[in-house]
C-alpha cells in the first residue's frame, strides 16, 4: 500500500533528531580496530608451546571476548540512552581498545607497553563507569529502587570492562613472572571466580526483571555460581584437589555463553514485530551481546586451572 497523498508540505527544515549518528561511527571504528588487531594476530607466528604460554594466551582471549561483549553491549545500551552524555562514547571506544590490547601479545616493547596501559585504562574506565551508572540511578525519583536497578543505567555493566582490563593486567603479571605459574594461577583462579560471581549477580538481576519466564534463564545464574565457587575453592586449596569438576563447570559456562547468545537472538525475534522491528527489539529485547561474556570468563577460568595444575613454582 502506498502512502496517502494528502501530505503537509514541509515549510521548514526538520528539527534536530537525537544524535545517534556519532554512536554508529564510534562502534564502526571500534569494530575496525578490533578486527585489525585480530587480523594482525592471525598473521603473526605463534611461538607459544608450554602450559604457561597457552594459559596467558587463553586468558587474553577471554579478556578479548569480554571486551567485545562490552563493545557491542555498551554501544547498544548507550544508543538506547541516546548518547545523552558525551562520556557515553568512552565505553565502546575503550572496549575496542581493550579488545585490541588483549589480542596483542604481552611483552616489553613499545607496543606492548601501550597494551599494558590500555588494560589499566580499561580497568579504570569500568570503575568510573560504575560510578556514573550509580549516579544515574540515584538521581532518578526512587533512588536506589528496584525500578531504577532494572531500568536506569545497568549497575553491573561497566564492571565487565573493568574485568576485561583486570584479566589483561593479570596476563602481564603472568608473563613477567614465568617462575610463579602456580602462585599466579591461584590468584587468577580466585580473581576469575570472583568475577564469575559478580557477573552472575548482574545476570540474576536482569533475569529476575524478566521474571525467569523461561526456566532456561536459571542456567546462567546457577552454573556460573557453581563454577565461581569451584574456582575459588581451588584457589584456596590448590593441593590435591581434583580439578575435573571445576573444568567441567567452566567448560559449561563457556558453552552457556554461546547458548545464551542463541537464546537472546531467539528472544529478540519473539518480541512484537520480531527482527523486522529490530530498531525497537534489539534495544529492549534480551541483550544479544551480553551472554558471550561468560565464554570469556570460562576461558580465563580454564586457563587459571591449567596454570594451577600444570605448572610448578620454581625458586
Amino acid at each position: 500500500m502506498r502512502a496517502p497523498s494528502h501530505r503537509e508540505v514541509p515549510t521548514a527544515p526538520r528539527t534536530r533528531r537525537p544524535h545517534t549518528g556519532l554512536g554508529r561511527v564510534v562502534v564502526g571504528l571500534g569494530i575496525a580496530l578490533a578486527g585489525a588487531a585480530l587480523a594482525g594476530r592471525a598473521m603473526r607466528p605463534r611461538p607459544e608451546t608450554g602450559v604457561h604460554q597457552k594459559s596467558i594466551r587463553r586468558t587474553r582471549d577471554g579478556a578479548a571476548i569480554l571486551g567485545a561483549s562490552v563493545l557491542f553491549d555498551s554501544a547498544l545500551e548507550h544508543l538506547r540512552g541516546g548518547f545523552e552524555n558525551r562520556a557515553m562514547y568512552v565505553a565502546p571506544t575503550m572496549a575496542a581498545v581493550s579488545v585490541a590490547a588483549s589480542l596483542a601479545e604481552p611483552g616489553s616493547g613499545g607496543r606492548e607497553r601501550g597494551a599494558r596501559l590500555a588494560h589499566i585504562v580499561s580497568l579504570a574506565t569500568g570503575v568510573i563507569g560504575t560510578g556514573f551508572h550509580l549516579y544515574n540511578i540515584t538521581k532518578r525519583p526512587g533512588g536506589i529502587s528496584w525500578n531504577n536497578l532494572f531500568y536506569a543505567a545497568p549497575i553491573g555493566a561497566p564492571g565487565a570492562l573493568a574485568v576485561a582490563g583486570a584479566l589483561g593486567m593479570s596476563t602481564e603479571v603472568l608473563a613477567a613472572q614465568p617462575r610463579n605459574g602456580r602462585r599466579n594461577g591461584r590468584a587468577l583462579a580466585g580473581l576469575t571466580g570472583a568475577f564469575l560471581l559478580g557477573e552472575t549477580a548482574e545476570v540474576a538481576l536482569l533475569h529476575f526483571r524478566g521474571a525467569f519466564h523461561n526456566p532456561a534463564m536459571y542456567l546462567p545464574v546457577t552454573v556460573p555460581t557453581a563454577a565461581g565457587i569451584a574456582l575459588i575453592s581451588l584457589a584456596l586449596h590448590p593441593d590435591g584437589r581434583d580439578d575435573r569438576v571445576a573444568r567441567a563447570l567452566l567448560g559449561t559456562v563457556g558453552a552457556l555463553g554461546l547458548l545464551g547468545t542463541a537464546f537472546h537472538i531467539y528472544g529478540v525475534g519473539r518480541n512484537m514485530g520480531g527482527w523486522s522491528n529490530w530498531r525497537q527489539n534489539a534495544l529492549v529485547g534480551p541483550p544479544t551481546p551480553a551472554p558471550i561474556s561468560f565464554t570469556g570468563l570460562g576461558l580465563a577460568g580454564l586457563a587459571a586451572v591449567d596454570l594451577l595444575q600444570g605448572t610448578e613454582d620454581r625458586r
Binding site: 526538520r14 528539527t15 534536530r16 533528531r17 537525537p18 545517534t20 538506547r80 541516546g82 545523552e84 512484537m272 514485530g273 522491528n277 530498531r279 525497537q280 534495544l283 529492549v284
Partner: peptide
C-alpha cells in the same frame, strides 16, 4: 504504533522514529 512501539520513555527522551524535539 504497532507492531513497533517506543523504547525511550524518559523525560525529554525520544526515539528516532518520533517527532524531533519541539521548538
Amino acid at each position: 504504533a504497532s507492531p513497533r512501539g517506543y523504547v525511550r520513555l524518559g523525560t525529554d527522551r525520544i526515539d528516532p522514529w518520533e517527532a524531533p524535539h519541539g521548538q
